[in-house]
Design a protein around this nucleic acid. Sequence first.
DNA 1: ATCGGCCCTGTAATTTCTTACAGGTAGCAT
DNA 2: ATGCTACCTGTAAGAAATTACAGGGCCGAT
Lengths: 251, 251
Amino acid sequence: MSKNNAVDDLHIIERIANFQNMDQFKTAMDGFLSTLGFDCWAYTVKMPDSFNGSSFDIIHTWNQEFVDRYRDIHAFHCPRLKHLWQSEVPLIYDKKFTDNDLKLLRHQPVKVKAVIEEIIDFGYHGHGFSLTTHGKHGDKGVLTLQNRDKRKDGIDAISLSFHFASAFFPLMHMKYIELKGWRPPGSLFPLTERELECLRWAADGKTAWETGMVLNVSERTVNFHMANAQKKLMASNKIQAVARAILYNLL
Amino acid sequence: MSKNNAVDDLHIIERIANFQNMDQFKTAMDGFLSTLGFDCWAYTVKMPDSFNGSSFDIIHTWNQEFVDRYRDIHAFHCPRLKHLWQSEVPLIYDKKFTDNDLKLLRHQPVKVKAVIEEIIDFGYHGHGFSLTTHGKHGDKGVLTLQNRDKRKDGIDAISLSFHFASAFFPLMHMKYIELKGWRPPGSLFPLTERELECLRWAADGKTAWETGMVLNVSERTVNFHMANAQKKLMASNKIQAVARAILYNLL
DNA sequence: ATCGGCCCTGTAATTTCTTACAGGTAGCAT
DNA sequence: ATGCTACCTGTAAGAAATTACAGGGCCGAT
């Protein structure tokens, strides 16, 4: 973390903003994280390609066996992990955390219980934390840093790393999404102001006729703009057009 | 910031989670921020009530005159501030920042230029930073911390505060939204699994008949679930139902 | 055992959307 | 001037959604 002052921060922000390719990104990621002094880290990215399916990337220094198993048993059914993905509340792993989780186990259905037990058993220990960041386009990232090595006095060293990672992980994630070139499907063509207005009113439940009243144009014109928006968003109907516009944060 | 270790962090997270009312929240906010040693701070919250209008809250220690003027001249038209609201890239205010902004001025339309000049003139200086956080339901928060007092050596003290605020501001914001009791309209009744499935497929542009094929039920049944979802979401049609479900992060 | 919630299905009238055809205006840039 | 873009409007046929009417089955809880 070097000198840890605001000039450094500006420098880091600029550095992240200027990564040109994925190699630079990954090298820097490695650099940042290894200086934080953890045994292992994982960065998981979720990119929603539709409302019925998402693609995931996982970059990690865990052993592959664990990650595969983790995915196969649908570990994200564990309530705490589910919550991690949905909220911005970080998880801090320590003794107390594990105790709490074991307590929660009693109130879980058998299926979920088995999953959680296996996760804890397999590798859900070690000191560290998980952070979630929510991107603009429905994309999410989770960063996990852990010390498996019990001999290391991780718990007291976590804090600075936690704060530091909180500050820069959202930026790293944004840059990753950008470099990855991922876009929600059908976001290539810029929408005009009129098209956006029509989409907005449609999202608020207005019919084409009502939108026409609001915008002081004919119903026909609203349908015209809506049809153009649909083409640009590669949507098969108004509903998908609105859904994509929202997902892509256009409204 | 006291001892600054992980036990403290857990404590802070729990404390934030346990605020019972707005008074406790505001007192704590004051406490956190005043210990960071800045002259003044502002916390701005945006809650989208529909796609055509949002409500804003501003809690601040600026002088009211500035805040009013800031709102009246639509300061958020300033590109940097617009970007701040849309992205998660923080702004760090220092000499370099102001210089950059003045440089950018040359390429701006006259209207925007006038706005920016007035902001800089009126109060857009001082050392500090602005942070953005994106909530789950389309809500956003921006936290700004500044030292107006030029005699204070702000720039080198910013970093720790910046990291600390990055870590806990998202949680504060989540809690604020919760305490405020704000919900996107029509999110009171829990949707069933079937209703969610129908909404998801609709959001992906499928017609009721197509969704029926996918779910292996009749078109009529899909319309039945969709109608129930519409009632629960208080939506006047399928489009608004889908839009609200997305906004409320249900899909 | 009864009630309520969730799931499922049918018919039919009406409204809205979607897509095809057709056309015209205004402003801006090379 | 010419082309490009955004904007606007009309008609009409067919597809889809919306809203009413109607009904039955399964399961878990009081």
